[in-house]
């Protein structure tokens, strides 16, 4: 990775880190933390879906695993919350690897893979709703005990900085993927699996690594969610709402790009909040906005917002030799 790869990440992280010094209202900070948690989960989805081309409709399976693992470890086994964070991430990676092993080994691709992931998430949801270890339908309350050692902070800004630091870390991870042999092979598998195999790419291993990384990152976001709201139940953790959120953000922002998931999450939730401010009495107005933005993105910005910006920039330079479908994924 060169300085040119790292500077944008550093600049944006520093700017975002300064935000709590200006904004002190709790609702706004709440919104920012939630938005960043979604962005982090979406970054996880993007590793598998964006770079690997394996569209999952069930990333709730990882998000929920992260949330439940940390909650159960703390409540039932008295494990420290920070250790819970690490173990939840590892559990997400393990679940990812297992789901990947079962589906990729049987050669599932495209819509079949999407359906299988959806099924896994639903099975987890039903099991979590029924089992006693997960608190059944009542869910689990993480004990309120504000202390940095418990990953609970008196000041919301501290949690914001923590999530931001993790988002920045995954931005770096994604940039590394983009510049590495692993990333090149992953993208090759996305573009044409047979051609990749002929060039010596072990497509099964590459996809398993991607889904394990993806599951780990998304589980981390689920763990942070549980830790911030101190509550988790089956419909929050394994609900299809989060699967949809995690795939919408990268698609809106720019699939297979480093910043796409963050840009998408910010755009979606930003617009959703604005809509709620103006038409808060209409229930579900933010979801209507999500739908509208998705339609616009699919119709007019195939590469998401970042893809659109790049095309505008290219057009500005008079470089229309590249058609919209031929835009390289490398520079974004």
């Amino acid at each position: 990775m060169t300085a040119r790869d790292l500077i944008p990440i550093a600049v944006l992280t520093v700017l975002a880190a300064l935000l709590p010094l200006v904004v002190t209202s709790s609702p706004v900070l709440n919104f920012l933390v939630f938005m960043l948690i979604v962005a982090l989960g979406a970054q996880g989805w993007n590793i598998l879906g964006g770079f690997g081309g394996q569209f999952s409709f069930g990333h709730a399976a990882f998000f929920g695993t992260g949330a439940y693992v940390t909650a159960i470890l703390q409540l039932r086994f008295g494990v420290n919350a920070w250790a819970g964070l690490v173990l939840a991430t590892l559990a997400g990676a393990a679940v990812g690897w297992a789901i990947g092993f079962l589906s990729f080994r049987s050669g599932l691709r495209g819509s079949y893979f999407a359906l299988v992931t959806l099924a896994f998430a639903e099975v987890f949801r039903i099991l979590a709703n029924a089992a006693s270890v997960t608190g059944g339908a009542a869910g689990l309350l993480i004990k309120l005990d504000v202390h940095p050692a418990n990953l609970q902070f008196g000041d919301r800004a501290v949690f914001y900085w923590l999530v931001l630091a993790l988002v920045a870390a995954v931005l770096l991870l994604t940039r590394w993927i983009q510049r590495s042999r692993f990333g090149a092979q992953l993208v090759a598998v996305r573009e044409n699996e047979d051609a990749a195999k002929a060039l010596g790419v072990n497509s099964l291993t590459v996809k398993l690594r991607a889904i394990a990384l993806s599951g780990g990152v998304t589980a981390l976001s689920g763990c942070l969610y549980a830790q911030y709201f101190l509550y988790v139940d089956a419909n929050i953790a394994y609900g299809s709402w989060i699967s949809v959120e995690l795939l919408l953000a990268p698609i809106i922002g720019g699939v297979g790009t480093v910043f796409g998931p963050v840009v998408g999450a910010l755009t979606l939730h930003g617009l959703g909040e604005v809509a709620k401010q103006f038409a808060g009495r209409i229930p579900g107005i933010d979801l209507i906005v999500f739908g509208g933005v998705l339609v616009l993105a699919v119709a007019f910005a195939r590469g998401g917002i970042l893809g659109l910006l790049e095309r505008v920039r290219d057009r500005g330079r008079g470089m229309m030799a590249r058609g919209p479908k031929e835009v390289s994924h490398a520079d974004r």
């Binding site: 092979q185 996305r190 573009e191 044409n192 031929e326 390289s328 490398a330």
Partner: peptide, 14 residues
């Protein structure tokens, strides 16, 4: 079977 979304250089680099 080109990797259509990649540049020529990226294709060969794989």
């Amino acid at each position: 079977q080109p990797f259509a979304g990649l540049t020529v250089c990226e294709n060969i680099a794989v």
